[in-house]
Simulated assay, not measured.
Amino acid sequence: MKKLIEQIMKFGVVGFLCFGIDYGLMIFLTEACRLSYLVSSGISFSVSVIVNYILSLKFVFDTGKDNNKIVEFLIFIVLSVIGLGINQALMWVCVDKLHVHYMISKIGVTGVVMVYNFVTRKLILEKGE
């Protein structure tokens, strides 16, 4: 249990950093570059996924040194694409249907995707103990 709590805390730190990248880049692309919030949200999410992958495998999940890193990366990408789909769908619902500002929507959507990410990565990527 102690290891799980420590792992969740590390995941939180990595997630907070990646959220900063995701949120900041989304706002920059939307406001400064005048991209649609859905386009900028997709781009920013994708950039943060790459950073998250590197940090998660280095500091959060024990995937085993003998694991095939290409297979791990492909699994991570598939899980992330599903996460991107959840992100985009929820952003669309919140902004276009519920009329919540995109900056506020992103915060709530990130919470949902973060839970999905932790559970799926722990169950699928981490080596059995």
Score class of each variant (00 low, 15 high):
Asp62Leu: 14
Thr63Gly: 02
Ile86Ser: 08
Glu31Gly: 13
Ile107Val: 11
Met91Ser: 11
Ile43Val: 12
Leu25Pro: 03
Ile43Met: 12
Ile70His: 06
Ile5Gln: 10
Leu38Phe: 07
Ser80Arg: 01
Glu6Val: 08
Tyr23Leu: 11
Gly42Pro: 03
Val71Phe: 01
Tyr37Met: 07
Asn117Trp: 03
Glu129Thr: 10
Gly12Trp: 02
Val119Ile: 14
Arg121Glu: 09
Thr30Met: 15
Lys97Val: 11
Leu125Lys: 13
Glu31Asp: 15
Thr30Trp: 14
Ile21Val: 15
Ser41Met: 09
Ser56Val: 08
Phe16Trp: 00
Glu31Ile: 15
Gly24Pro: 07
Ile107Met: 08
Ala32Phe: 14
Ile77Lys: 07
Gly108Pro: 03
Gly42Ile: 04
Asp62Cys: 13
Leu25Val: 14
Phe61Trp: 03
Thr63Phe: 00
Val115Tyr: 07
Phe118Gly: 05
Ile50Cys: 00
Asn67Ile: 06
Ser80Lys: 01
Met103Phe: 13
Ser36His: 14
Arg34Gly: 10
Leu25His: 04
Leu17Phe: 13
Asp66Gln: 15
Gly20Met: 00
Asp66Pro: 01
Phe73His: 08
Asn68Cys: 13
Glu31Tyr: 15
His99Val: 10
Glu72Phe: 06
Ile21Arg: 01
Leu17His: 01
Lys106Phe: 05
Leu57Gly: 08
Leu79Ser: 09
Ser56Thr: 09
Ser41Val: 06
Val112Glu: 03
Asp62Arg: 15
Asp62Tyr: 09
Asp96Tyr: 04
Leu38Ile: 09
Asn117Phe: 05
Lys10Arg: 15
Gly85Tyr: 10
Cys94Lys: 01
Asn68Ser: 15
Met1Asn: 06
Ile43Gly: 00
Met26Pro: 06
Ile8Ser: 08
Met91Glu: 08
Leu90Gly: 04
Phe11Met: 06
Leu125Ala: 13
